[in-house]
Amino acid sequence: MTLIRRDLLERGFSLGALTLLTGCDLSDSNAVQSVLAKFSAWNDRVQAALFSPDRLAPTFPESDAVKDFRYNAWYGREQAPSLDAADYRLLLSGRIADKRPWTVEQLHALPQETQITRHVCVEGWSMIGKWTGTPLRIFLQRVGADLTARYVGFECADGYYEGIDMPTALHPQTLMAFKLADEILPREHGYPFKLRIPTKLGFKNPKFVTTIYVTDKEPRGYWPDRGYNWFSGS
């Protein structure tokens, strides 16, 4: 190998670094996307292994809880669906014994508890809120869901959809939240209820839930379908 060729090689290295820095096209190539997807699937497994069903998310004093909780969605606050308690029915499907739909009144009659936990958004911001509702675990037991199934999925009135692993669904802090800051859940935050899962990133907390299903097939997720990590635990 001659010294000239060495020099060329060395310049090649710096060129490679430059291309990487301006790597717009690189990121959009199918080959790169497929490698990144493989890493993301690997990270799903790592996170499932890291997840401890007994470890509680930190809770905070009431003084830390924010009253005016940040609104976040891909559409504006005024476009958030407005669900009417008179018409609303929560539908159940999949591996659930009792699939009768639930009214808001029936949901509110379930045993409830309150938690002050932190919502961590995938964008990087975080906010502490006071949430009141029914542990999803209690609801799933009540309707005779197959708790040996692998996943629980959610469909929402705004076209959103998400899904979580069964260990997270059974986690004691995973709530069907009916209240925020002691008030009935405001419309834009997901009335009649949203999933409040402090062991997941914010986008794994679906609002306006209209269907809950239990399945062994990994449920799709709105943002995971758009390239975000599926497990997204915190």
């Binding site: 959009d28 990144l36 943002w223």
Partner: peptide, 17 residues
């Protein structure tokens, strides 16, 4: 344009790989 995501999904995928 695709789905209101400012390319953060791919950036996160890069970061966590």
């Amino acid at each position: 344009a695709r789905h209101g995501d400012p390319g953060v999904a791919t950036a996160l995928a890069w970061h966590f790989a």
